[in-house]
């Protein structure tokens, strides 16, 4: 078991190292002049040279990469014009536009994004599983067809379009969601009132992201449960005299959990990119908000930083999923 975890961790680190290299090459070095990209339309020679210096763009690629990697572990100082911005480990670079370390920017948005993503994920999986179970047990009947139709519709509509429509209808037309922004869970005042405002500030995001995600999980788990309902061990359970409900919950759905965990990790990247749109329209200043604005600003260090942060989360998520899978399915330990 321990060896299994160790091996997967090493594999994850190798992937992460490759991601760092690829990201660095694509975002911050590589064949084209990144300083020119970041300098933008109102570029002055001074600004251009300051950016070049902050990227260490005059040095060879390997040396740049080395500096970036060492910054990840011990931190470094990045010159921007006359000042020097200290970037503590794990340093993901410095935003020229905001003159702040990318790590600090990301950590600032983390509570918001984590709250949105975790809430939405829980909603997606539980509602999805429930929909899947209801559909699978009513296979080819009206309820099943209804669930299939609704979830098909929800998965088919491009999420970005949904977000735009939601923004136009809820925020612009009906003005239901004021877009007050994020209310931290831990701040001054009583815990319960904070909890209430925290929940109400996030509820629209959870519902939108969570329910649209639930459609996908619903279709997926329906397939899995239909399959496991046809397994011999379900027949054994029925022959024992278990009620339909017990057969479904204790036997058929049990077998659907491992594939759902696997799909969840595969979809983790999608969940994070979903927060990019969500945060934008509901004015929640999380990591997605940061990334979205950096696209317009061409703030490549921030884009690179958020990319790496996302990649690290995906790798970590995979590792956790491996542990969870080994707990859910005793046969996994064998390999």
């Amino acid at each position: 078991m321990l060896r299994h975890v160790a091996r997967r961790s090493v594999a994850g680190l190798l992937v992460l190292l490759a991601t760092v290299t690829a990201t660095f090459w694509l975002f911050l070095s590589g064949p084209f002049d990144r300083a020119r990209v970041m300098c933008g339309v109102n570029c002055t020679p001074l600004r251009y040279h300051q950016i070049r210096a902050s990227l260490s763009a005059d040095r060879p690629f390997l040396s740049q990469l080395g500096e970036y990697l060492s910054g990840l572990f011990v931190g470094r100082d990045v010159p921007i014009g006359k000042i020097s911005v200290h970037c503590a480990a794990p340093c993901l670079g410095v935003s020229y536009a905001q003159r702040r370390s990318v790590t600090a920017l990301i950590l600032g948005g983390l509570p918001v994004t984590a709250s949105i993503a975790i809430g939405a994920a829980l909603l997606s999986v539980t509602v999805g599983l429930w929909l899947g179970a209801v559909a699978a047990t009513h296979r080819n009947r009206v309820v099943d067809r209804l669930i299939l139709t609704v979830t098909m519709g929800a998965t088919a509509v491009p999420f970005a379009v949904v977000v735009v429509l939601a923004y136009l209808l809820f925020v612009i037309r009906w003005n239901i969601l004021s877009g007050d922004g994020y209310h931290p869970l831990f701040s001054d005042g009583s815990f319960w009132s904070n909890l209430a405002s925290w929940t109400s500030s996030l509820l629209p995001a959870w519902l939108l992201l969570g329910l649209f995600g639930a459609a996908g999980y619903g279709r997926f788990s329906r397939g899995l449960i239909v399959e496991s309902l046809g397994e011999d061990y379900v027949q054994t359970a029925v022959a024992k005299g278990l009620s339909e409900r017990a057969v479904l919950r204790r036997h058929a759905m049990r077998a659907a959990y491992p594939p759902i965990v696997t799909i969840f990790t595969l979809d983790l990247a999608g969940l994070l990119s979903g927060t990019i749109f969500i945060e934008q329209i509901f004015g929640l200043s999380g990591i997605g908000y940061l990334a979205f604005n950096s696209i317009g600003e061409r703030d490549l260090p921030v884009l690179a930083g958020t990319t790496l942060f996302g990649a690290a989360l995906v790798v970590l998520g995979n590792l956790l999923a491996d542990l969870l899978l080994a707990r859910l399915d005793p046969r996994v330990k064998l390999q």
Partner: peptide, 8 residues
């Protein structure tokens, strides 16, 4: 699978 498509 680790690289976020949108940002890249």
């Amino acid at each position: 699978l680790t690289m976020p498509f949108l940002l890249v």
